[in-house]
Design a protein around this nucleic acid. Structure first.
Lengths: 104, 104
DNA sequence: GCAATATATCGATAAATGTCAATATATTAT
DNA sequence: ATAATATATTGACATTTATCGATATATTGC
């Protein structure tokens, strides 16, 4: 997975509105029209955020007739957790680096 | 912790350059001048990104003479992991929501 | 004190992002 | 077929972010 894809995952958590939306979805699947009632943004803006959330893999969209149902995507979340761990985990080459950098 | 602060944490992972920088820091503490060699950006831009990384709590800065040493902040990382989990964890009110939303 | 070095800040600019009203598309009900 | 409804897309605009060169600040060595 390249850095651009990694960024895409964490974009889900980088906007206050999207955090509100995720918070709504913690209570289970909701359709866009319900989210629209609970979050104070226009329909176009909601649609925009839902696209970003789905692209991140954190949210899943399911079309049923004219309704879009959104829910938190377990697999995507697991992937995000794993990714986060991997991105901050000390690497083996730590040992190569014992001599202090720049403190000549 | 409010949503604005949560956003701040995940900003650390929402830029390709910052991911490169974090990747460098996985190998241990490095000073800004070393990072500048390894990541292809200007000194001003590096300084900008280091500020965002430190503000997120993911990175720690330590001044030693005229050098700034940066390293991954274990506590901040743990906080980010916990936060991520909390943000996507199903809430108890799930049970209130069994009837399908919008499928009248 | 002065010169050299490392880093931060400032100001300008370009690119990306969030926002909305308007419009388009898809689905359902009549 | 038409009207009504739900959602997506478009186009315009404002805000935020990333970037850099220039400058300021802090530290060290002479």
């Amino acid at each position: 997975m390249n850095n651009s894809d990694k960024v895409k995952v964490f974009k889900a958590f980088c906007d206050e509105r999207r955090i509100e939306i995720l918070n709504q979805l913690k209570c289970g699947e909701k359709c866009a029209c319900k989210l629209l009632e609970d979050v104070d943004i226009s329909q176009a803006t909601l649609s925009h955020h839902m696209k970003i959330l789905c692209d991140s893999g954190i949210v899943n969209g399911r079309k049923e007739g004219k309704w879009m149902h959104y829910s938190i995507n377990k697999e995507g979340c697991q992937l995000a957790e794993d990714l986060l761990k991997e991105m901050i985990q000390p690497c083996v080459c730590q040992s190569n680096n014992q001599e202090d950098c720049c403190t000549k």
